[in-house]
Amino acid sequence: MIALRVLVVLILHVAILAGMIYTHIERLKAGRELTMTVEPVDPRDFFRGDYVTLTYAISRLTPKENETLEDWQRGDDVFVTLSQSEEGAWIADHLSRELLKNGDAPVIKGRVSWVQRNWTTATEAWAGEFEPNFARPLEVKPDRLCPGGCVEHIAVTYGIESYFVPQGEGRKIEELRNDGKVSIVIAVGDDGAAAIKALLIDGKRVYEETFL
């Protein structure tokens, strides 16, 4: 009986892993293809062992005119509606907390990984910190210190930021990427989830994701 139960666990674990692969492959098949330009990043930061970090124009979102990003917090799920720039690159059009379909515009789901605030205006409150009887500011009120909001930008991750490469090939791809020769084809499902579908160098597909 207990041996039978172990087999049930085996089936469950295999089903979870197989389900992951199936969902991913289905997303690649059915998802809408978007070609994303990869942005160069500081070489000292991006190379971590055997994968290349990919940063896109939609990875760092800054507030537009008459817009504030104050409400976003680290860990929030975010749906980013995309639009194409004049150069043809996909950029963020607007953000929402729910999946909102706006015509044919693709929507990609991400998670806020960092909120960059500018606290420079708060330093005034700390003037005389080392003086006797200094009263420590208890709470910084962003609305008072930064009219219009203190958030300079938010970083968003979409699950398409890592491209695993064979040992030793990372540098080569990174150099090409920093020369602006690398782009990534992603597949975005109806639910906004995205997956890497292909790697392009100089516009040619050098890697295509398949089941096997």
């Binding site: 892993l17 992951m20 692969i21 991913h24 994968y51 998670r111 991750t157 699950g159 398409i160 930021e161 890592s162 491209y163 695993f164 997956a195 890497i196 994701e209």
Partner: peptide, 10 residues
């Protein structure tokens, strides 16, 4: 599997 299919789930 995440590495094989370039999945970068958190």
């Amino acid at each position: 599997i995440g590495q094989t299919y370039h999945m970068n789930a958190g």
